[in-house]
């Protein structure tokens, strides 16, 4: 009898339960209802160095820009970046220029 029973089981395996189109539609609707919604990230804050400096100084908006520019000016003045140093050095370089020629050549004994 167990052999016959195994035949019945095999027949049952060959004839799987076919879900109705209505059931499949309901399950798909559930799937869509429970599907993760795409997450909309908040807009990233603008990364501006001037705004960051303003944030450090505790001011915002146009004041932040002015304050930042002032700080930057002071910093440039004190630190004197290499490029600036070379320009100023070239500008203020003192070279000796002989405006009145000497007359040593008149007393030169060799002549």
């Amino acid at each position: 009898m167990h052999t016959d029973l195994n035949d019945l089981f095999a027949e049952a395996r060959r004839t799987p339960s076919e879900p109705s189109p209505d059931l499949l539609a309901r399950i798909m609707a559930d799937a869509e209802d429970n599907m993760a919604r795409p997450v909309t990230a908040p807009p990233a804050p603008v990364r501006s160095p001037w705004r960051f400096l303003g944030w450090l100084l505790g001011v915002s908006g146009a004041s932040a820009g002015m304050a930042s520019a002032a700080i930057a000016g002071v910093w440039v003045g004190f630190s004197q970046p290499d490029t600036v140093s070379r320009v100023t050095a070239a500008y203020w370089a003192v070279t000796s220029v002989e405006v009145i020629p000497t007359y040593d050549f008149l007393t030169d004994e060799t002549q």
Binding site: P16, P19, L24, I27
Partner: peptide
């Protein structure tokens, strides 16, 4: 849905 529903059902 198509793969698993028949088995569960």
């Amino acid at each position: 849905t198509l793969r698993l529903t028949p088995r569960v059902l």
